[in-house]
Computed example of a mutant assay.
Amino acid sequence: MSEQERKGKILIMDDEDMIGEIACQMLIHLGYDGHHVKDGEAAIEEYSRSLEDGVPYDIIVMDLSIPGGMGGKEAIGRVLEINPDVKVLVSSGNPADPIMMQYGDHGFKGAINKPFDLASLQSTLDSLI
């Protein structure tokens, strides 16, 4: 699939390399370009860089919590300061977390439970693109 045929550009923030790599492979399969970073600081830097380059990410998927680092819970506010219209999904292995259940109250546009599969990833992204 050529760059022009791609559906969008997605930034995945997850501290686990395997999850980030698998998510990027799923995105490629679904017709998106994916890029993986390990924590909130890196996500903020990468998103800012993409805006400066004139090719911003269409959606950011942020892991809710990153042990020893900045997770989505903390990073969402900073990303919204950069661009209040950015579409950010929160992901977590704990679907009962209050932020996962009330994601809109925290600035997120949606939530996706980990581990996510191809169908849930596709339907969640398609609802935002």
Score class of each variant (00 low, 15 high):
E45R: 14
L11S: 05
S127C: 05
D17L: 13
P84V: 02
I99M: 13
I22D: 04
N113L: 07
V90F: 03
E3Q: 09
S120G: 03
G110T: 07
K109A: 14
S123M: 13
A43C: 15
I76N: 04
T124G: 06
S91E: 06
N94C: 14
I10E: 00
D15P: 09
L121N: 01
A119E: 12
A43N: 11
V79I: 15
A43H: 06
K114E: 03
E45Q: 15
Y57M: 11
I76E: 05
M1N: 11
D97R: 10
S120A: 06
I129G: 01
M70W: 01
D117H: 00
S120V: 06
D126Q: 12
I76V: 13
D105M: 13
S2Q: 08
L125A: 07
E46C: 13
L51A: 04
M101E: 11
C24I: 10
N113H: 07
D97C: 14
P95R: 06
S2P: 12
L64G: 05
G107R: 06
I76C: 09
Y32T: 10
K109P: 01
M101K: 14
D85P: 01
M101W: 01
K9E: 02
S91N: 07
H35P: 04
Q25W: 04
D39A: 15
D97A: 15
A43M: 13
I19Y: 05
K73C: 11
L121K: 00
I59Q: 03
G77Q: 10
S50I: 07
G40E: 11
E45P: 11
I99P: 02
M26L: 15
L51K: 12
P56A: 14
V55F: 12
K73W: 05
L128A: 09
V55K: 15
Y103H: 14
Y103T: 05
M13S: 07
Q25Y: 03
R49G: 03
I44Y: 05
V90D: 03
L64T: 04
K9R: 13
L11M: 10
L11Y: 02
M62C: 15
A111R: 02
V86Y: 00
M100R: 06
P67L: 11
G40V: 15
C24A: 06
G71N: 06
S123R: 08
I22F: 03
E16K: 12
D17H: 13
M13G: 06
S92I: 11
M26C: 10
K7P: 09
D85F: 04
D14S: 08
Q122V: 03
F116A: 00
I22V: 14
E5C: 07
Q25C: 12
I112R: 02
I129H: 02
A42E: 15
D53R: 10
K87S: 05
A111I: 06
D117S: 01
G68K: 10
G68Q: 09
V86D: 00
C24P: 03
K7W: 02
F116N: 00
M70Y: 03
G20M: 08
H36N: 13
L128D: 03
I82P: 07
A75I: 09
M18L: 14
E5S: 12
Y47M: 03
E81Y: 02
V86P: 00
K109C: 15
N83F: 03
S65N: 14
E41Y: 13
P84K: 05
I129C: 08
P95E: 09
I82H: 04
E21W: 04
G34L: 08
I12W: 02
